[in-house]
Nucleic acid binder design. Sequence first.
DNA 1: TCCGCGTTCAAACGACCGTTCGACGCCAAG
DNA 2: CTTGGCGTCGAACGGTCGTTTGAACGCGGA
Lengths: 219, 219
Amino acid sequence: MTEPLAPEPPETEEGQAVTKAAVFNAAERLFALHGFQNVSVRDITAEAGVNLASVNYHFGSKDALLFEIFRRRTSELNRERARLLHEATARYDGKPPVRAILQALFGPPLRWAKPDGDRCVSVQFIIRARSEGNADMREVLRNDVSHLERFANALMAARPDLPAEDVYWRLHFVLGMVHNNRFAEFDRLHHLSGGVTREGEVDALLERMLDFAEAGFMA
Amino acid sequence: MTEPLAPEPPETEEGQAVTKAAVFNAAERLFALHGFQNVSVRDITAEAGVNLASVNYHFGSKDALLFEIFRRRTSELNRERARLLHEATARYDGKPPVRAILQALFGPPLRWAKPDGDRCVSVQFIIRARSEGNADMREVLRNDVSHLERFANALMAARPDLPAEDVYWRLHFVLGMVHNNRFAEFDRLHHLSGGVTREGEVDALLERMLDFAEAGFMA
DNA sequence: TCCGCGTTCAAACGACCGTTCGACGCCAAG
DNA sequence: CTTGGCGTCGAACGGTCGTTTGAACGCGGA
């Protein structure tokens, strides 16, 4: 460890950007855990085991690194949500019920949040970036709108009697529910219930959220 | 403005801590707008029109200032929530329905969020501190538990057939709803609906949230 | 009048930040 | 063998941060 030699030649085994990937993963994990402003470039490079200048060489700046992580993860999440909504639409002959629509909305972030999976930090990163984001990331969230529009339209088709205004507001409410699934909130929930809640099984949590949100949309 | 003289003698009109109050208010506003890490002590003192050393003199440190703001605002919020729950309990002879309980939970932060009121920044500060908080502030949120416990007990009394586990989870869900009422989210909602939603009237928003959350609890 | 206390002031300190620089090793192309 | 681009390295730069310092100020009580 303290050996200054043996710099471990950059091992360009397959790609040439192993360093870039190491920086990406380390930054995502540290940002998700401690927040953007609380993690320095030196923390990232130390965690990744690379040189300090790697961030600026491969990504341009610390902000650009954060933005690239955010852009990739949100596009992955939106793509999976759109795929599930498309499948539900096909399964129900173009008119999926409210519960199927909400399942396409809740499923991906909840499945990612499984504590053993590697996607656990990704969803934590997205949630944190959503509240600490820059003006650039607000712009990405603005494009998020076209993605949420499909869910709003599907919900309006599933509940044609409900005014569009109510659909938008209730979509806003359920997004608040899913964005609130932070580590800190889980801790409080555990402490509040005195250990009654077992959040380990994300499938059961998904059913719980669907029961609650579906009833809210049916009001 | 550029006049270095006329230092405006500390005008100890009534209390002796006009400087402390100015720092408190300026810090709360800036923290609510830009986040904790994005606001420097120099920003605060410049906004308040006081000397740079005032923060450390009156509050000890920047972190202690943040903590004191957070502690005061959360205690105010919890006190008002407890008062409304107490009133609802008395009004319904000890067994308030779900909607009345949720109204005591939603009302204070929504009424504070009125854009013209001076409490508008307070609720924004609380929401932001809840996601960017330190370990010390997590401790305060831990004491929040005893405050939420009363709401959980009232909800369990209103729906005795519902398992306690579900009550805790659904309380977690509705807290996510109310904590999601950020400026950024409002912007997205406006852009999403194409201007259909008018969030100006907080009373209408409160009714919307109550409709949704009550139906969710009744599932 | 003078002293002591609380408060404010300008100025600086040390630490940490993001970023940049120039040199070096490597490998493929000429 | 030479050359040049690419990636990495240690080291440093300028700037901003939170905090501290010591002097000055105002003012009420000996």
